[in-house]
């Protein structure tokens, strides 16, 4: 049996005395996976654990078969995990070009020029500082700089949050493009419809646990499930 690129087993995570993740198990292969769940269900904590930004207290996270427990974030990034965090977190005192320049590596599939080709808007704004960009531009920048790591897995935490509908659909296209490049995708979303449009498989998190795992199609055609775990009335857009 071939191992999946990302394998998570029995993951526990605590912030002080509060127990945030309980025995989370997940696999991500070349089929893009969406993680859905309401606010406060542990989705961002899962991303922090994958990136090593917060140590987990039990369980293991394997990337390409290697246990990453105890590895610092920079090692995980170098191993090939691109991270697009919640809130985008662009550097406020770096220009667009500097963002890309500090991450660009010679000889990879992605170069600064290719990012500019993919996001012409960023090229127009390349002399602007990070905090002078619109939300959509910041999101492009956050994705662009993560791509410059030439990752094998992209972890995107709520990339459509706070964006106008037109931009949301750009982001969905982009995720499809990333997946088409052969990059594995882990997409954390609260916006179910955006997620369902972008990924093929979904996992639902409730109270720090993965409670369901199914195809995007199956969730789309199961309003009862949507209502139970995501609090969505049938027909309501998320």
């Amino acid at each position: 049996m071939a191992t999946d690129l990302l394998e998570i087993r029995g993951l526990d995570l605590r912030y002080g005395s509060s127990h945030v993740l309980h025995g989370v198990g997940l696999n991500v292969s070349d089929r893009p996976l969406g993680i859905l769940g309401r606010n406060g269900m542990g989705k961002t904590s899962l991303c922090n654990a994958i990136m090593g930004l917060h140590p987990h207290s039990a369980g293991e996270i394997r990337f390409d078969g290697i246990d990453m427990t105890g590895l610092p974030p920079e090692k995980r990034a170098q191993m090939g995990i691109g991270y697009v965090p919640q809130g985008r977190r662009v550097f406020r005192s770096l220009t667009v070009e500097e963002h890309l320049r500090i991450v660009e590596r010679k000889g990879g599939a992605w170069s600064m020029d290719r990012v500019y080709e993919t996001f012409p808007r960023l090229k127009e704004r390349r002399r602007n500082l990070g905090d002078r960009l619109s939300g959509g531009e910041q999101q492009m920048l956050a994705i662009g700089r993560a791509l410059l790591l030439n990752p094998r897995l992209m972890v995107l935490d709520e990339p459509t949050e706070g964006l106008a509908p037109a931009i949301v659909s750009d982001v969905i296209d982009l995720i499809e493009l990333i997946a088409g490049e052969g990059i594995a995708v882990l997409l954390v979303e609260q916006n179910m419809h955006a997620a369902l449009a972008a990924v093929q498989d979904v996992a639902i998190m409730v109270g720090g646990e993965v409670v369901e795992r199914m195809t995007a199609q199956a969730l789309e055609s199961d309003p009862a499930m949507q209502k139970r775990h995501l609090g969505l009335e049938p027909g309501q857009s998320g």
Binding site: P55, H56, S57, A58, T69, G70
Partner: peptide
């Protein structure tokens, strides 16, 4: 006083 309490954290 509480010798039975052990460190739990593995990380």
């Amino acid at each position: 006083r509480r010798p039975e309490v052990k460190e739990k954290s593995t990380v």
